[in-house]
């Protein structure tokens, strides 16, 4: 059952992405309502798919890359719906929904219904994956806010007052969104890494073995730590923060690719 709902969700997010991208180019506001409706339905089917998947794979017990990405996509939409609900920031959908779609399509590529062949695994691994993914959601939102910031900044600087200019919110709000996302994402990632170390200790007997994936994770962590401290102490905000969070998210993506290459579909 989960795969039906999963495919349905993918279809809905695809349509919603198309609508949201069209919304960027058009003056009319009605398209945002349509897109939001489709996204909300997609979110509902996604929730069903996730729950069904969890009951399906309860025996397998190993969080796979597929599940991690699907969960990431789900959280991303949840955050978007929350922000949209509070701030009516329709244009955010034009950036977040495509990202959620990409992540879901990637998840689909790694979907496997056979039980994992690795050794039986422990609850800590679920905690590790969940926390890391929540942290990643924070960075993803910061990334989106950064991209939107740079676009709006560019439009203001070049005095191109087009449709996009009208739809994007004020610069300082985007900067605020960027900051909030990192402030929330960073502690979650930190906890994710700590729980990951514990899992590694249980599975392999060592907390850290500095494989490329772990190294990248630590580099990413250090980078975001610097971004956060820089913002709070020496004013790395606005345009600089936007650039940094975009670079940081690229690091996150590389880490995830590392995870995939290493474990062929399972996270450890």
């Amino acid at each position: 059952m989960s795969s039906v709902f999963f495919m349905l969700t993918m279809g809905l997010y695809f349509v919603s992405t198309v609508c949201y991208l069209a919304y960027l180019l058009r003056r009319a506001e009605t398209l945002s309502k349509v897109s939001l409706g489709i996204t909300a339905v997609g979110f509902a089917t996604h929730t069903v798919a996730l729950v069904a998947r969890m009951t399906d794979t309860a025996q397998a017990q190993l969080p796979t890359f597929h599940e991690a990405l699907s969960f990431f996509s789900w959280m991303l939409i949840l955050v978007f719906l929350a922000v949209e609900f509070r701030r009516q920031l329709h244009v955010l959908g034009s950036f977040i929904v495509p990202l959620a779609l990409v992540s879901l399509v990637t998840a689909a590529a790694f979907r496997s219904d056979e039980a994992s062949s690795l050794q039986p695994v422990f609850k800590t691994l679920w905690v590790h994956v969940t926390l890391s993914m929540l942290g990643t959601v924070g960075f993803a939102v910061a990334f989106v806010a950064g991209v939107m910031y740079l676009i709006q900044d560019g439009l203001l600087k070049s005095k191109r007052f087009n449709v996009l200019y009208a739809k994007l919110p004020a610069l300082d709000y985007l900067d605020h969104l960027n900051q909030q996302s990192i402030v929330m994402g960073f502690p979650l990632l930190t906890l994710g890494i700590i729980s990951g170390a514990f899992s590694a200790e249980i599975v392999r007997g060592t907390y850290v073995n500095w494989n490329p994936e772990q190294t990248w994770a630590m580099v990413t962590w250090g980078f975001y730590f610097a971004v956060l401290v820089g913002r709070l102490t020496i004013g790395w905000r606005a345009k600089r923060a936007a650039y940094l969070t975009i670079i940081g998210f690229a690091g996150v993506i590389l880490t995830l690719i590392g995870v995939v290459l290493k474990s062929h579909g399972s996270v450890s």
Binding site: Q152, L156, A170, L171
Partner: peptide, 9 residues
């Protein structure tokens, strides 16, 4: 109007 695109409040 421009100010409002730089400062939300």
């Amino acid at each position: 109007e421009l100010a409002k695109k730089i400062f939300s409040n």
